[in-house]
Simulated assay, not measured.
Amino acid sequence: MDDRKRSGVCGVFVLAFFGLFPGFSTVLGQEGEEINPKKLFEYHCATCHGEDGKGTKRGRELKAPNLADPEWQGKKNDEEVLSSIMNGKNKMPRWSDKLKPEEIQALARYVRKLAPKKRS
């Protein structure tokens, strides 16, 4: 199997593992409690990204992206969003040391919902 195919298979595995495919919509925490991704985002991410994902003054100084920007959303695939949350990027900390995989999964899906819906 060449490297591109292997990379694609690994990417699909990661997305499936973290439940980023549509069939894995409910994320449960300890003892079956549903994880609230909005609260997670507000607590861990809003300092830089703002509650709406558009960024704060501090976030802009740190060059945090506007997560609500449809153009940014279009340039990033689910694996990249997940990787940034897990491993950090630039000045953003790695959250895999502080959050559970299911919380990271919930945050990644929440980030995808920050862009305004396209009108048909």
Rank of each mutant, 00 (worst) to 15 (best):
G8E: 15
V9T: 07
C10I: 10
C10P: 00
V12H: 08
V14G: 00
L15G: 08
A16Q: 12
A16I: 06
A16G: 02
F18A: 03
G19F: 14
G19Y: 07
L20K: 08
P22Y: 11
G23N: 10
S25I: 07
S25R: 15
V27E: 12
V27N: 11
L28V: 14
Q30V: 15
Q30C: 00
Q30F: 04
E33F: 07
E34Y: 00
I35E: 05
N36D: 15
N36S: 11
K38C: 01
F41K: 04
Y43V: 10
A46F: 01
T47V: 07
G50H: 02
E51K: 13
E51G: 11
K54F: 01
K54I: 02
G55L: 00
R58L: 14
R58S: 06
R60W: 10
E61P: 00
E61A: 08
A64C: 05
A64E: 03
N66G: 00
L67P: 01
K75C: 00
K76Y: 00
N77E: 14
N77M: 09
N77D: 15
N77Y: 06
D78F: 06
L82D: 04
L82Q: 09
S83T: 14
S84G: 09
M86Y: 10
N87Y: 13
N87Q: 15
G88F: 07
N90Q: 14
N90D: 14
M92A: 09
M92H: 01
P93N: 07
P93T: 02
R94P: 14
S96N: 15
S96V: 09
K100A: 13
K100Q: 15
K100N: 06
P101I: 06
Q105K: 07
A106P: 04
A106I: 09
L107G: 00
L107S: 04
A108M: 04
R109E: 07
R109T: 06
Y110K: 02
R112G: 09
K113L: 09
L114G: 03
L114Q: 04
L114V: 00
A115T: 03
